[in-house]
Computed example of a mutant assay.
Amino acid sequence: MTTAAAATGLIAAAAASAAPAHADTTANDFLGALSAAGLDGLDPGQAVELGQSICPLLAERSQNTADIASTVADQLGRPLGPATMFTGIAVAFFCPRAVQDLANGQSPIPLPILNNLGF
């Protein structure tokens, strides 16, 4: 291995390890909202990953909110009610386009869910 290649490898490793150590505030806020809504006992990493996976589903024309909530219920191993709540919270935190649509009077999720959360 040449010295230049070794140096490049070290620089790449240093850059990767220099990522900020602070936690993602959106993810933390999302987890806090889940807890405040009574959705406890979820693995934080899996909850965030599932929450972030909802936005692309909203963009698919073949998916409706009932289908998405049903998928979330299966993933969480929870009934449809809590899964629908989870879906609404995830949209509020991770899907700015959907929130913008709500502001324009278009609802990707049932509005009573957001009303209960103060949105």
Rank of each mutant, 00 (worst) to 15 (best):
M1N: 10
T2S: 09
T3C: 07
T3S: 13
A5D: 13
A5I: 11
A6R: 13
A6C: 04
A6I: 05
T8E: 07
G9C: 06
G9S: 05
L10P: 04
A12M: 06
A14S: 06
A16I: 07
S17D: 09
A18R: 09
A18H: 02
A19Q: 09
P20L: 12
A21D: 05
A21V: 09
A21T: 09
H22I: 15
H22K: 10
H22Y: 14
D24K: 02
T25Y: 03
T25C: 05
T25Q: 08
T26C: 04
A27G: 03
A27D: 14
N28Q: 15
N28R: 10
F30M: 04
L31R: 02
G32Y: 15
L34C: 11
S35G: 13
A36W: 11
A36F: 12
G38F: 03
G41W: 05
L42M: 10
L42W: 02
D43W: 08
D43I: 10
G45A: 08
Q46A: 08
A47Y: 03
E49T: 15
G51F: 01
G51C: 15
S53W: 01
S53Q: 13
S53R: 09
I54T: 01
C55G: 05
L58D: 01
L58R: 00
A59C: 08
A59Y: 07
E60D: 15
R61L: 07
R61Q: 13
S62K: 07
S62A: 08
S62W: 04
N64A: 06
N64K: 11
T65D: 13
T65V: 06
A66N: 11
A69Y: 01
A69M: 03
T71R: 13
T71I: 12
T71K: 08
V72G: 00
V72P: 00
A73K: 08
Q75T: 06
Q75W: 02
G77L: 06
G77Q: 04
R78H: 13
R78Y: 13
R78S: 15
P79V: 01
P79M: 05
G81D: 13
G81V: 14
G81Y: 11
G81W: 12
P82D: 02
T84M: 14
T84R: 15
T84N: 10
T84P: 02
M85S: 14
M85C: 10
M85D: 15
F86T: 00
T87K: 05
T87S: 13
G88D: 00
I89Q: 12
A90S: 03
A90T: 01
V91W: 02
F93G: 14
F94L: 14
F94M: 12
F94G: 12
C95Q: 01
D101R: 12
D101T: 14
G105Q: 00
Q106T: 13
P108S: 06
I109H: 05
I109M: 05
P110L: 14
L111T: 09
L114Y: 03
N116L: 09
N116K: 11
N116H: 03
L117T: 08
L117N: 02
G118P: 03
G118F: 00
F119D: 01
F119R: 02
